[in-house]
């Protein structure tokens, strides 16, 4: 199981790298779809059908949004050279050195904290349920929902869902404010 999921994540990484380096915005967006739909397959393998259903809908909507955004845009600026080099300046200047040093330091820091976090976690597939033991034992009786995920989402952690709905409506208001063409005169 671990190997299969690793292979799928490998494909997702390849898709992400292609999306970031594509010469055309449309192919970049389509390659971004590889990452999202690969996540759907991973969710199905990880025994999370609810997540797979939600993710496939959300990924499709995001893809439609992105295609709608780039449809009437030009992509000629992508073909410009990435590293424009001015005449008379050396490749190695202070800014270059500072940037590279910062990147290396931060990558090392991220790797350090990642290894610290992984040490605390149980190995893949040997997770021990702590908080959710009570949910699994009593959830079906207390909430009346056969699906434990929806039972937790709408009953035990209902305020989380309320906050999620608040964020959704705030985002809708924000989008309407941003895209409004003209205000009151």
């Amino acid at each position: 199981m671990e190997v299969i999921i690793s292979v799928i994540i490998g494909f997702m990484i390849i898709g992400a790298i292609f999306a970031l380096n594509a010469k055309d915005l449309l192919s970049a967006v389509i390659a971004c779809g590889i990452v999202g739909y690969g996540l759907v397959i991973c969710f199905l393998l990880l025994k999370a059908p609810d997540l797979a259903i939600v993710q496939i809908v959300v990924e499709t909507i995001t893809l439609i949004f992105m295609v709608a955004v780039i449809l009437d845009s030009s992509s000629k600026e992508l073909n410009e050279k990435r590293w424009t080099h001015l005449e008379g300046t050396s490749y190695i200047n202070t800014r270059f050195v500072v940037n590279i040093t910062t990147v290396i330091v931060f990558a090392g820091l991220l790797l350090f904290f990642f290894s610290q976090a992984i040490d605390v976690l149980a190995p893949f597939g040997q997770h021990v349920t702590r908080m959710s033991t009570a949910y699994i034992e009593n959830g079906a009786n207390q909430t009346g929902s056969a699906n434990l995920v929806t039972g937790i989402l709408f009953d035990f952690r209902g305020y989380d869902t309320l906050g999620e709905a608040t964020i959704l409506f705030t985002a809708v208001i924000g989008i309407l404010t941003i895209l409004r063409l003209k205000g009151k005169q």
């Binding site: 949004f65 959830g139 959704l168």
Partner: peptide, 22 residues
Amino acid sequence: VDPLPQAMVLTAIVIGLATNAM
């Protein structure tokens, strides 16, 4: 399988859609 992370991810996916759209 542990249902608690799944419920949290379900919330996070929808929030991710909202932020992406914005």
